[in-house]
């Protein structure tokens, strides 16, 4: 009788099922690992995007003529420094504001700020579904989030989104731009982060 060597069907079935279990375990682990990496990346990307936005704002503001720098008045400014809310008023040193307006040197003549652009400005616009009330109205984990709108020579441009706060603080000639945002971590908790840019306004 000729006995051929090989595997029986039962052995093959057993091995296949064991292999399937092992591969399923590996696939589950890899899936969890990639999800973890992706969620970590979300936070890191959000932080880097915020930093880039702050740098971009400072680049736009660098040719700002400091004598034309104004802040938007609020109800708290009435009647001491403004007749009504919504006026463009002189800034107070060290006071943070969310909406500013300025004119920049055109750059047509080197080191000459006599030629100025039309008024430009920044302000935080709250997104649809949110109200500036200190609460998370749309249940996305972010409070009063909005877009940083830039008015560039009459053209509105959304410079950054998902910002919880955007403030501008002038101390002498040093302007501090502060942007705040948030992103959800692996644990499902909202992690908040801030980007600060300091800018020296040398144009009078």
């Amino acid at each position: 009788m000729n006995r051929q060597s090989g595997f029986t069907l039962v052995e093959l079935t057993l091995v296949a099922s064991l292999l399937a279990m092992v591969m399923a375990g590996i696939a589950t682990f890899l899936s969890a690992a990639t999800t973890s990496i992706r969620l970590d990346d979300n936070v890191a990307v959000a932080m880097e995007s915020l930093q880039r936005s702050a740098i971009r704002v400072s680049q736009v503001m660098r040719p700002c003529s400091i004598s034309t720098y104004r802040v938007l008045s609020t109800a708290a400014d009435v009647p001491l420094t403004a007749a009504a809310a919504g006026e463009w008023i002189e800034p107070v040193d060290g006071e943070s504001r969310a909406a500013i307006q300025f004119r920049s040197a055109t750059g047509a003549l080197s080191l000459n700020a006599e030629q100025l652009t039309d008024p430009r400005g920044f302000r935080l616009e709250v997104e649809t579904g949110e109200t500036a009330n200190g609460a998370d109205d749309d249940n996305d984990g972010m409070v009063d989030e909005g877009r940083l709108m830039m008015n560039y020579d009459g053209i509105p441009v959304a410079l950054a989104s998902n910002l919880e706060a955007a403030t501008f603080t002038l101390n002498g000639r040093l302007l501090t731009i502060t942007l705040q945002s948030a992103a959800r971590t692996r644990a499902g908790v909202m992690q908040r982060f801030v980007a600060n840019e300091v800018l020296y306004l040398r144009n009078n």
């Binding site: 970590d40 990346d41 890191a44 932080m47 880097e48 930093q51 002498g172 000639r173 040093l174 980007a195 600060n196 840019e197 300091v198 800018l199 020296y200 040398r202």
Partner: peptide, 23 residues
């Protein structure tokens, strides 16, 4: 990621300090 995050903080601080020194 942690290393990169710390480097960004350091870079931002250096940049802001040099800008402050201009005044």
């Amino acid at each position: 990621r942690r290393v990169h995050g710390e480097q960004i903080l350091a870079m931002s601080a250096c940049r802001n300090m040099l800008e402050t020194l201009r005044s």
